[in-house]
Design a protein around this nucleic acid. Structure first.
Lengths: 191, 191
DNA sequence: TATATTTCTTAATCTAGATTAAGTTTTTCA
DNA sequence: TGAAAAACTTAATCTAGATTAAGAAATATA
């Protein structure tokens, strides 16, 4: 269970056994049911979550009352609302399982504690954040540059298995358009 | 000159004098003229740049040949193309000064070297990346949720002085619409 | 200080994608 | 296993913002 986190860490950095165990002892295992929330709008995000198994989406509700999917998270991803987690502000986001899931979570207190002194764990999170930055920048560039249809086909090309894993309306929301428009795109493709 | 970087570091972390000097000795000062490029499409991004003074924009050229502004950077910001810098790939971005500027730059080699062993510098970049992540997420949420007019008024509200500092067409591009449309918004406001 | 270049504006026309609404298919779970 | 809920489709109409084009202001530079 915990080995999937250990493996993930060792893919990027080389902590001593002591450092690794120190970190590992700080995380809590949790089983999450499909549709269960691990963060709700208005609350404080006190945890960073590592997904061992399953899938989550984070979304907010816009002025018109429509759910907007901001991110997905699957196996081997860290998921939190950094704005709330770091700045201790009320979150505007909801994070909800889209499948039964198993996660490890670390509290803000433990997160701060380990990062106070551990070189390798600092490296680990820095490296992850560099990769997240690359992904965010790429996404912003796609959003600017591609039509709805191109966004869908590009996403499909790079994540074919994932498209099967979530309802279409969530994907539409993530890509920034309506489910009706996604239907239209797909109808065009298959004809 | 270099003290603005020292101050920035000390705002977030507390390196020993030795650690600080080690890092400081790795950066190079450079004067940049308005419109000068510090990164050009097709090249490898070998540096991370800290802006002491001045303003930069990063942009790419889309399929239609239109410049799309991805980011701005001003005083006390680190600016690079992480995708190219980390993964050693050819960049698709251009980074260009929009004013005469003074920067400090650190090579990928030196960046890797200092981060190999320095706890505090790892913390520093991790913390910066957490903040960048927060900004990126906020931007993505704005792009999803706000109309063109709202994007402009929101940007103006939080960055009134900055709006004066750059040509309107760059801001329009950054916000994801055409300069003509920005003109229209402004005409509406002032009437 | 005149001319070239860059930036900004206005207005007419066009289009990708939203909205609305109704029906269909699939999944869930009692 | 059958009813209710969730997810998806289709089609008509509408709109925010793009495109095109031309002129006006502002800024840079010789």
């Amino acid at each position: 269970m915990i080995t999937s986190l250990k493996n993930h860490i060792q893919r990027f950095v080389n902590p001593s056994e002591k450092e690794m165990n120190h970190f590992i002892n700080m995380v809590e295992l949790e089983n999450i049911k499909n549709k269960q929330f691990i963060l709700k709008e208005g609350h404080y995000c006190n945890y960073n979550h590592f997904i061992i198994n399953g899938c989550f989406r984070s979304f907010f509700i816009n002025k018109k009352g429509v759910e907007k999917t901001v991110n997905f998270g699957i196996e081997d991803w860290w998921l939190t609302d950094f704005d709330s987690f770091i700045n201790k502000t009320q979150t505007k986001l909801n994070i909800q399982a889209t499948e039964d899931a198993i996660i490890l979570k670390i509290s803000k207190f433990n997160f701060d504690t380990i990062l106070q002194n551990s070189l390798e764990i600092n490296k680990y999170f820095r490296i992850i954040l560099e990769r997240v930055r690359i992904a965010d920048q790429r996404r912003i560039q796609y959003m600017f540059n591609l039509s709805g249809e191109e966004l869908y086909t590009t996403f499909y090309k790079y994540n074919p298995e994932f498209v099967q894993r979530i309802p279409q309306y969530m994907l539409a929301s993530y890509l920034g358009f309506t489910p009706e428009f996604l239907s239209k795109i797909r109808a065009k493709k298959h004809s």
